[in-house]
Design a protein around this nucleic acid. Structure first.
Length: 599
DNA sequence: ATAGGGTTAG
């Protein structure tokens, strides 16, 4: 019973209702005086009268039941539903709510259904999806109406950020055979992509095809984007081939998504791949746009290949496409990360001349350039300057500056900056704390590292893989690799997957403590978790072996590394030079190393 | 509903 059902103490006479009659709906005409019908009371919004009727007449829930059974106009029933819910603070039964939905569906009151379901998704947290499906399937006999309700329910959950429930509805809809629209499924896919649930993305996509939902170009684009986001670039390329096989035309977004995927997540030769996709795109008669060029320019800049970026920049203009703020920001970022601050400033002037307004990202890139050069004073002045000019700093601006202070060993100033950002109404995020925790770790201040970390967690911020990597490194720096290993266990328990950096850092810690056996165990563990050793892994182990004087074993690892198709880098070369060649040991791959040292 | 720029870890 409803807690407030004692309100309905009046005599409720069921016999006064005439469920069969649509029009003569006179529940309270116990005397001969003609009374307005309930329908009239609702349509004239005479709520006070209705309330007194109900208080004398009986439970409001039963009245809803009567309205539904009598096939009263669904608009009126909905009005009564809302009013009674508010007035009596009651919650109508799931079945009656589903009946109401069905009657709205049959009367094509779609926007009313949408807002009804939106409220449901927003406020109703205790009803399971399986009971909803049971109710909607028994409360109406129109298959298409039921499908529509399920379809709208997916969107309602997604709109209210309840992706998992939207996904649940998708699965149940399959069990019941209800057909969802491609639009809702696309919404669901993109929500799953945002939450990095790539397995569910692939599942939904396959299911859509199995259920014969007409997938469209957006469906494919969203899936490609999801695959790119988690670095499954080959699979993303395969999807493009599938589109061709299905006869679905690729559009500009399809290609831009894949090119951006290679630029961001691709490894060696990624820009070569990106260029190949560009060529295929042109062959498929899809013309690159500003965004395509921006993606390529940014990719080359991040690849530390500013000359190539400049070439694309020129080509873009040759094609008659105008560079915009994003274009310039990428170039400025690229120049700054090579330390070419003056040239970056030249581009800043150029964009102003072209009437392009530099934004906070432009200034952040320049600020970062100054910070990475260790020019703390200039960076601070520059920051004050552009803030005075009216550019609103963001959390990234502060993080850039805070990190610079931390790396400069000025922890007190860094914490003061955290205070000033809070005063400005900008809340520190995980990255802010990562910078601070990293700075404290470098100082070897483990006690404060712990304190600030728990402070972060207490503020409701979640530690991410970078946070844990910083903690692992901090422990290792203090010669506490065993404790670092426990941090790794803890992160796994929290549901965060360690990555290469995590394992490599821990291995490095063990190697520096001379515990090679433990380091090799970590490699076994990382492989078991599906992380193949990379160049850094080999560098760490080779150095560890060299330090122990096991030059033959180190040599074997070098060969192993080449066999695995990994290309030694500068650090590998440094290790070989200092730890092997200078000790008179010539590794098998010395010739190979020579070519690296020159690059 | 799907594509581009700025911060943090080896």
């Amino acid at each position: 019973m409803h807690p407030r059902s004692n309100l309905f103490h009046g005599k409720f006479r069921l016999g006064n209702f005439c469920p069969q009659s649509k029009h003569a709906f006179r529940p309270f005409s116990s005397d001969e005086t003609p009374l307005p019908t309930v329908a009239e009371l609702i349509s004239k919004q005479l709520w006070k009268q209705l309330k007194s009727h109900l208080l004398n007449g009986g439970p409001a829930t039963t009245l809803l039941q009567q309205l539904l059974d009598s096939k009263t106009d669904p608009d009126l029933t909905l009005r009564y539903f809302k009013w009674s819910q508010k007035e009596f603070n009651l919650s109508h039964s799931l079945e009656n709510r589903c009946k109401l939905l069905h009657s709205l569906a049959n009367a094509k009151r779609y926007s009313k259904m949408r807002s009804f379901l939106n409220d449901f998704a927003k406020y109703e947290n205790s009803v399971s999806v399986s009971s909803i499906f049971h109710a909607i399937s028994i409360c109406g006999d129109s298959f298409s109406a039921t499908s529509l309700i399920a379809d709208m329910l997916v969107k309602a959950y997604l709109y209210n950020m309840k992706t998992n429930l939207g996904f649940e509805v998708f699965k149940r809809a399959g069990d019941y055979g209800y057909k969802l629209s491609v639009l809702s499924c696309n919404h669901l896919l993109s929500a799953l992509v945002k939450e990095n649930e790539i397995e569910n993305v692939e599942y939904v996509f396959k299911e859509m095809i199995r259920r014969k939902i007409e997938v469209d170009v957006s469906t494919f684009n969203i899936v490609i984007n999801g695959l790119c986001k988690v670095g499954k670039l080959n699979k993303a390329s395969d999807v493009i081939q599938d589109m061709k096989a299905w006869g679905i035309l690729r559009n500009i977004i399809t290609y831009n998504t894949l090119i951006a995927g290679y630029c961001k997540k691709g490894r060696i030769g990624k820009m070569y791949k990106a260029d190949a996709i560009l060529k295929e795109m042109i062959a498929s008669e899809v013309r690159p746009n500003e965004i395509t060029f921006n993606i390529l320019i940014d990719g080359f800049c991040k690849d530390e290949n500013v000359p190539a970026a400049m070439k694309v920049f020129k080509e873009m203009q040759t094609q008659g496409l105008k560079p915009n703020v994003v274009t310039y920001n990428s170039l400025i970022y690229g120049l700054c990360s090579e330390g070419r601050i003056d040239e970056a400033n030249g581009f800043l002037d150029e964009m102003v001349r072209l009437d392009l307004k530099p934004n906070v990202a432009t200034y952040n890139a320049l600020l970062n350039g100054l910070c990475k050069k260790g020019k703390l004073k200039e960076a601070t002045d520059f920051f004050d300057d552009f803030v005075k000019k009216g550019i609103a700093p963001t959390v990234i601006t502060y993080n850039t500056l805070i990190d610079a202070y931390c790396k400069g060993g000025r922890m007190e100033d860094a914490f003061a900056l955290r205070e000033s950002m809070i005063n400005r109404g900008i809340l520190p995020d995980v990255s802010t704390y990562n910078c601070l925790i990293g700075g404290l770790g470098r100082e070897g201040n483990i006690r404060v590292v712990r304190k600030v970390t728990s402070e972060m967690l207490n503020k409701g911020l979640k530690a991410n893989v970078i946070t844990y990597n910083i903690l692992v490194e901090a422990m290792c720096k203090e010669g506490e690799s065993r404790k670092a290993a426990r941090v790794l266990d803890e992160m796994v328990k929290t549901g965060i997957s360690p990555n290469h950096v995590t394992y490599n850092t821990l291995m490095d810690g063990y190697c520096r403590e001379g515990n090679l056996r433990a380091a090799l165990n970590v490699r076994t563990q990382m492989e078991k978790e599906g992380n193949r050793p990379n160049v850094v892994t080999y560098n760490v182990l080779i150095k560890g072996l060299c330090m122990k004087g096991k030059l033959e074993d180190a040599n074997a690892l070098l060969n192993d590394m080449l066999e695995k198709g990994l290309i030694p880098n500068r650090t590998t070369y440094e290790i070989v030079k200092e730890e092997m060649l200078e000790k008179g040991f010539v590794p098998d791959i010395q010739g190979h190393m020579y070519s690296i040292s020159g690059s």
